[in-house]
Design a binder for these strands. Sequence first.
DNA 1: GGAACTCGCCAC
DNA 2: AAACGTGGCGAGTTCC
Length: 462
Amino acid sequence: MILPKTSKARKLFHNGLQSLNRATIKGMRLDVGYCKNINKKLNKKLANLEKELKGSKFGKRWRKIYPNMKIKSDDQLSNILFNKMNMPIIKFTDKGNPSVDSGVLEILARGIPDLKIISKYKVLYVANNTFIKAFLREQVDGYIHPEFALHVIKTFRSGSYGPNFQQNPKRNPIQKEIVRRAIIPRKGHQFIAADFGGIEVRCACCVTKDKQLTHDTIHGDMHRDMAIEIYKLDDFIKKGYEKELRFAGKNGFVFPEFYGDFWKRCVPSLLKLANLPLKGTLKPKSGKKLMTGLYMGKHLRKKGIRSVKDFEKHVQAVEYSFWKERYKTYDKWKKDTIQEYKKKGYLITKTGFVCQGIMSNNEITNYPMQGPAFHTLLKCFNETDRRQQKNKWISGLVAQIHDEMILDAHPNETDYILDILKEIMTNWILKKFKWITVPLEVEADVYPVDGSWAEEAKTVVF
DNA sequence: GGAACTCGCCAC
DNA sequence: AAACGTGGCGAGTTCC
């Protein structure tokens, strides 16, 4: 449990309630015609995919066992795959049952191509049922009014409801296009979305005072560094593989480690991200192609890593140096903070919120970053709101996604607003939150006039 | 017939 | 010994 114990914390939330509520009241325009249209189209498409699956070899087998076949029934699917067809179990759910999630289906589709129909179905189903339908259900006179609450999330971030505006698809391009196309600015307006870059890591720099982390965050590239170390890449990363392998370093290792994961659980995703097999020996022709005639498998073998077991050992060593050498100050902070919590029974964040109650080690070391990261955005949101009222902008704040604020802007005011955002988010905030001891970086996406949220934006970096 | 649970998936 | 942090939500299923 966290409580806004200090007067500063209470004031931040008191102002936040009002500014967030104003954004809710203002709301965002919904392209209702588009939503109704795409909803119809998707219903038809989903019906067709269902028909296709039922007619396929795999679908016939399914229906023989379950005459009332339901594509969405993971129980039915799992029973057929793992009990009737004896397919290998790739991973287990939290409750210990064989998993049939998208990653598993992707692997099993190598042997049963019909499974691809199910994956395709699920992607479109989520876009339609979780998002488009919610928009149509929640809209009033062509506007949606997502709410933002400050009293629900235990780290005192914000939550969003009716609809939840903090989970709109971004990574899957098909879902992104379908869903974000529905959100449009007011007539003649354009969206501005300004987000802090790596705000949680920057909070970690300020909280832990780790000099190496601070250096890497401001001047270096830790994700790239870790990718090079994990895959022993040396100069391969310079030859056009930077983006993908950096992604693997970031999402397969650095982020999980910061959240409290450990090497053994990182290995499967690191293997998957490099297209390597999940067990056994690393064959010379396995994995991502690094250059003509050289695959990741062969490359790693040359470096003495001949099997998944070898790779596991290597990742364990990388983790050791990550915490015991590279970020040893951060590591010590974690130990000290856990000790402090155990002694006092509570912790207090940089923004004045008290964390108390029964917490795991990972919770103890994550809460001091997660809350203040959002509070930095909220403080800026409040100030932007104050200025928009004082100066009677036509434009206005309409939403917030943890480290990002979204405005519906009149083009005549756009440049002026960008100046204001730059001032508030990179300068003003440092005077208000003295504990922020690293520079802050902001990316502001400016969308085309009358362009939906799915359109390509012009990015301005502060 | 509804509450509670489970799984999977969307975001940061 | 521990073992990814915070949520919302839809669908299927089970229990009462």
